[in-house]
Design a protein around this nucleic acid. Structure first.
Lengths: 197, 197
DNA sequence: CACATATCTTACCATAGGTCAATGCGTGTC
DNA sequence: GACACGCATTGACCTATGGTAAGATATGTG
């Protein structure tokens, strides 16, 4: 299986060398999953981090009325998981499924330990990635706390133009925390303003 | 300066021994700050993680109309910071200030490296703490996406009864993403229901 | 005590966004 | 072409929450 992106990721973000890569190659497990397949369901204990080599995954929760709240999209080079569930072996509250046929690299805690043995810098690099992830989550919370749906949408378009093109609008609405109808209205009002201007 | 809680934290959460503690003691910097003091302002580069030995800090953003959005409270045994700013040396978008007189332990990147040299397990433990933190942030996002103000409030009361008693209601409203007036109404309606029941 | 300041509540109205139902539109299938 | 399906839009109406302004309450300070 060709895992060009995962290898590049390990080199650029994880600080590994080509030599290191050769050593850890045996530990790498990847699998092709098809659109609609689940990698995690509510109640399961999440066993892996999932790196997207090619395709598109989504992480979401269901609220009491059965409505999906999309917490994250993961396209190429993204890692998605219920990290809490992996680390603390607790049942997850979330679902992860594939919205496109997706080539996924399965990363377990063990893998991180092994890579760290091969290259001790890896743990520190990994820590930086986590800190960066936390930063993004803060930004998202900050937006949800104090920013209108309209602006959140504009921000999403700017930040994730690629995802815009790959998922239906109702998923973006779910990610933004509004209904598809509301998003449609926001888009209409934006379009009208652009026309006037 | 007595740092009983920080020491306990390093032992219990960081996996250090008493011996380790003795070795790193010289690197520990703590400082008493008074109510109203800032540890971080928008535009600054955040230089430390802040461990609260005693007192109460808050992390917040200002939106365009100058309204505060409180991202996090930190009471005893909590660490708060703009981690992105620390790690990537970028200007912060946030403020951190003290709402009570607070004894703060200043932790820099260097400190983490030093402790890791003394006890190599520390880095891995630290990673777990980060993953746990991420889990909480996901929970918060999930709530903001799909849960009413009323339920978010009830959840806050259950999760943080201590903070309830130490900060004014308008700060809790800010943390929940609503106005103080709305929170007042939520509380009223809850009170009425309890009276009926 | 008189006063100032901060917080919380209440009442009234405004608005963003939700709900429901109908319609339209594009694509795939037979 | 005819139909079904998933998605997006629209309109009418509803609800939660926001905005404003006025009191009420509490606490501190001279």
């Amino acid at each position: 299986m060709q895992l060009a992106k995962f290898n590049t990721y390990l080199i650029e973000k994880g600080g590994l060398t080509q030599d290191d890569l050769a050593k850890i190659e045996p530990f790498i497990k990847a699998k092709k999953i098809v659109k609609g397949d689940f990698l995690l369901k509510q109640g399961d204990i999440c066993s892996h981090f999932f790196f997207v080599e090619q395709g598109l995954l989504r992480l979401y929760a269901l609220n009491e009325d059965g409505k999906e709240n999309i917490l994250q999209f993961a396209t190429e080079n993204w890692i998605v998981s219920d990290r809490g569930s992996v680390y603390f072996k607790e049942p997850s509250s979330y679902y992860i499924d594939a919205f496109e046929d997706t080539l996924v690299v399965f990363i377990d805690e063990d893998f991180i330990d092994k890579v760290s043995q091969v290259n001790p810098n890896f743990r520190k690099k990994n820590e930086r990635l986590l800190q960066n992830h936390i930063r993004h989550l803060y930004k998202r919370i900050s937006q949800l706390l104090g920013v209108s749906a309209r602006i959140r949408y504009l921000d999403f378009v700017k930040m994730h133009p690629d995802i815009m093109l790959r998922v239906p609008q109702w998923m973006i609405a779910s990610y933004l925390g509004i209904t598809p109808e509301s998003l449609s209205r926001v888009r209409k009002s934006l379009a009208e303003e652009n026309f006037k201007a």
